[in-house]
Write a protein that binds this DNA or RNA. Structure first.
Length: 399
DNA sequence: AGTCCACAGGAAGGGCAGGCGA
DNA sequence: TCGCCTGCCCTTCCTGTGGACT
């Protein structure tokens, strides 16, 4: 108990670093969004007809992650809602993120989530889909609303649930008498729209906005803006912002990453009771973010997927280089045998490997060896330190 | 030019669990 | 409880394919 008290007391005695930590998180919406005036104005013009009760065009917003798409869409949406309220018009903005596991990544969950946002309750599962459409329909129609759906990471939804749902949503307007529904789709997959069914493509892509990546100088400006809110004066040492920006700019100008880096750097500085944030904390923060992310992924994988990863690591250890799918299967099946785990078919393992690739834990690419067939060549995509951690986690699972 | 390897990966469907209303 | 619906994980079956070999 005494030790814990010491920790708490020391924390309280430390010179504070943060003034408002929130300002560095993704959920924070700043007053002013730098370098996005054009996009804000464009989206504003597209949505403005809603103020006169008209249906607005469907919009697609493209841009890589951390380019401000979500921020701008939510910001414009909120402003629009406010102005409409003042003018006595019913405009409702509904935001859903399809990448949020277990919340909006299937047709059922998306609809259930939307219906909930209109204040009605829906069971997690169990209702036929057409009934859900009816519920959603009633929810919208009941309020005489002009509804604008912001569907974030819409590519994730379509990949999992197919594009039928988008078709159904765009078609709803034909049956609605009093209300209107428009869609703002947000995606970081530039080729996304071309993968859609042409019917959906034409009705959904009435307008499109492209969000270019930020450059290092722009990210610096964003960080400076936010740090004025987030930190007490003079805690950032020279070069910290520059370093965070440079690292994030290397990764296609991802402002979110820059903010994360800055926040974690400061948290590490706070934890070490060093009243200032110096460059060394940025390096540590980069490692920590990488480690935390990967460890989290590995920990939350189902057992079979962990077994496959273990097979990959074992196979790489043994061959000391790149390995092929068959090497993984061999190690994986050995592991299953040893732990009474029923081995999955090669087809399924191949999907699990692809999943691990998607998570960024491994890198794999399909390679043709001519007469000797085609295989997937696999290598690990983590630093040695992270690998040690992964091994630790997995050996606890497969003692 | 044609063959053929060794897999990738798409399609379809089975089986299970969770949840509903009757 | 039963029948029905869904999502999810998985298998089975199948077609496609890049390039070394003949």
């Amino acid at each position: 108990m005494g030790e814990l008290n010491n920790i708490f007391n020391q924390f309280l005695e430390n010179k504070p670093i943060f003034d408002n930590r929130e300002a560095l998180t993704i959920s924070f919406t700043p007053e002013n969004i730098p370098y996005r005036n054009t996009q804000i104005a464009d989206l504003g013009r597209i949505l403005a007809p809603a103020l006169k009760g008209a249906k607005t065009s469907n919009v697609f917003i493209y841009g890589r992650c951390g380019t401000g798409k979500t921020l701008v869409a939510q910001y414009v949406g909120r402003e629009l809602e406010e102005v409409s309220k003042k003018n006595g018009v019913n405009v409702k903005i509904v935001y859903v993120n399809c990448k949020m596991k277990k919340s909006a990544d299937t047709e059922y969950r998306l609809l259930a989530g939307l219906i909930k946002k209109f204040g009605k309750d829906v069971p997690f599962t169990g209702l036929p889909t057409d009934q859900l459409y009816h519920l959603f329909f009633d929810a919208i129609e009941g309020n005489d609303n002009n509804v604008i759906l912001i569907i974030d990471e819409v590519d994730a939804l379509v990949q999992k649930a197919g594009d039928e749902i988008l078709y159904n949503l765009t078609r709803m307007n034909q049956d609605l008498k009093k209300s209107k529904v428009s869609i703002i789709g947000i995606t970081n997959d530039l080729g996304f729209i071309d993968k859609l069914d042409p019917r959906i493509k034409s009705s959904l892509n009435e307008e499109e906005l492209i969000f270019p990546p930020y450059n290092a100088v722009q990210i610096q400006e964003i960080l400076r803006d936010r740090s004025k809110l987030a930190f007490v004066p003079d805690v950032l040492e020279q070069g910290v912002i520059e370093k965070c920006s440079a690292l994030a700019a290397q990764e296609h100008g991802d402002a979110r990453k820059a903010l994360d880096l800055l926040r974690v750097s400061a948290e590490l500085a706070e934890r070490e009771s060093s009243g200032k944030v110096s460059i060394k904390f940025v390096d540590k923060a980069e490692d920590k973010i990488d480690l935390d992310r990967t460890v989290e992924i590995v920990k939350t994988q189902p057992r079979q997927s962990q077994a496959v990863l273990w097979g990959i690591i074992k196979a790489i250890d043994e061959t000391e280089g790149d390995i092929e799918g068959s090497d993984v299967i061999e190690q994986y099946e050995k592991l299953c045998k040893g732990h009474g785990l029923k081995p999955l078919t090669q087809r399924r393992v191949s999907d699990l490997i692809a999943e691990l690739d998607m998570f960024g834990v491994i890198t794999s690419k399909v390679l043709s060896k001519g007469r000797y067939g085609r295989t997937r060549v696999i290598s690990l995509d983590v630093s040695d330190k992270v690998l040690e951690n992964i091994k630790g986690i997995l050996s606890e699972v497969f003692y």
